[in-house]
Computed example of a mutant assay.
Amino acid sequence: MRILVIAILVAALGWAAYWFIGSSAQERSVKNWLGQQQNAGWVADTSNVNVRGFPNRFDTIISDLNIADPNSGWAWSAPQMQFLMLSYKPNHIIAQWPQTQTVSTPNQNITVNSDEISASLVFRANTALALDRFTASLDNVKLNSNQGWDSQIQSAILATRRTDASEFSYDIAFDALGFTPASEIKAQFDKSGVLPATFETFSISTTAHYDAQWDRLSVEGNLPELTKLDINEANAIWGGLEVQAKGSVTLDNQGYPTGKLTVRAKNWKDMIKLAQENGAIDAGLARKLETGMGLIAMLSGNQNTLDVPLSFANRITSIGPIPVGPAPQIRSPRVQN
């Protein structure tokens, strides 16, 4: 019995020592990271970094956090940021944002209010902290700008996980309900005012292929470049407009896509009208599209629903055989050092 008691005491003291060493290391790593950003010319201030949760947790609480890049003019401030983890499972982190935070751009300040914004991150057990899977949840998020606009989203989930499709590929899914865009954006897209204020639903399931893994170095600025995007399923509903899409595109070194998507559009004539009103296509092309697409819809037996191939080649977007404009640049060109 005496030996057992001694063994328990030794184990308890050993675990306590492990926790205090680990919590000190956690606090030190946060302060070192803030110092590195300051040395790089950024603003990276906090009033306090505290690690608590003895004996089974490392809960890092960062108070009065201010991060700003003077070169770009972007900044973020929050009264508190929390990173929660089990002391025996430090590669799994729960991040919790405060209910109120502020994002600043060179032109405006945006106040973000929410019921909850949180994320679960699981890293591989290596020094690079390569991302294995990630899930973020947003609940009742509202954006208010000092420029007079506001926007909100009822709920959304973003999830990603590393796959075996290629060395640096990730399954990514996003599902959002009740998105209300800023009134200025809606007015630009919907000049005739035929669409409701709220975007009912948007969901997309993709496999994204990169030229490197997402890890600790990615967060510090060495962002992987997207090289290919497989759209397994996409669905968007906004009023009477409904669009579904599937397909795959490969990106060149400037971010322009080559490939095909199969698009199903409900009430497609309204979409052509909106594109014309927005200046994306001229009246002549709109008439040609409506005539050609109308023939395809008639052959399919449903004049309100259209199934067409959307193709990208030579930096041109085409609907079926008809070129309709330049292809989108999905990412910015890589900066050559």
Rank of each mutant, 00 (worst) to 15 (best):
A16F: 15
S23V: 07
S24Y: 15
A25R: 12
R28H: 14
N32R: 09
A40C: 08
N48C: 03
F58P: 01
T60C: 05
G73P: 03
W74N: 04
A75N: 03
A78M: 10
L86I: 07
Y88M: 12
P90E: 05
I93R: 05
Q96A: 10
P98D: 04
T100E: 08
P106V: 04
I110A: 01
T111P: 07
D115C: 03
I117D: 01
S120V: 13
V122S: 10
N126S: 02
L129F: 15
A130C: 06
N146E: 01
S151E: 01
S151K: 02
I153G: 09
L158R: 04
D171H: 13
A176R: 05
G178R: 00
T180R: 11
A182N: 14
A182H: 12
S183E: 12
I185A: 15
S192H: 12
G193R: 02
S203D: 12
S203M: 08
S205A: 06
Q213F: 09
Q213M: 12
Q213S: 13
W214D: 11
W214R: 14
R216Y: 10
V219S: 06
G221S: 07
E233Y: 05
A236S: 15
V243T: 14
Q244K: 11
L251F: 03
L251R: 09
L251Q: 09
D252V: 05
D252N: 10
Y256C: 00
T258R: 00
L261T: 00
K266E: 15
K266A: 15
K269E: 10
M271C: 03
A275V: 01
A286W: 05
M293E: 05
G294I: 07
L295R: 11
L295K: 11
N304C: 02
V308H: 04
L310Q: 03
R315L: 09
I316G: 02
P326D: 13
A327Q: 04
P328Y: 05
N337R: 08
N337W: 09
